[in-house]
Amino acid sequence: MADRFTLELPPEPISIGTARLFSATVARYFGCEEEAVEDLKLAVSEACTVAIRTNEGRHRRVHLVIEDGGSALTFSVQDGGSSAPADADALDVPVGELIRALFPSAEVSANPDGGADVRFSVPTSN
């Protein structure tokens, strides 16, 4: 059975730092390069930002799952809500684009509720 780590986050902005710390801790344990750790922290933060904005006030938890596939760790962030509310100062950069710029093979898919699920992999030294 592959190692699998899960973190359930309440949909609150303060949770995002925890998601980054959790992801970086697991990635460093599995020997990911430090540059990759910085990139995955950003990707996780972006994915969680969208998920939390989507679910804030609805009490639906955001799920961060990290799976060890032997030569790579796969990160997935799943929300379950509808589109994020408009933000006057929000960047006109779709979340998927920034994550794909960091991880070209990242999958960003709409879920049935209209939210987004994000999945990407990072090589390990194992």
């Binding site: 190692d3 699998r4 899960t6 973190l7 309440p10 949770s15 060890d68």
Partner: peptide, 10 residues
């Protein structure tokens, strides 16, 4: 908030 781990690594 909750964290979980499955399988054999430390």
């Amino acid at each position: 908030m909750g964290a979980a781990y499955t399988s054999g690594a430390p």
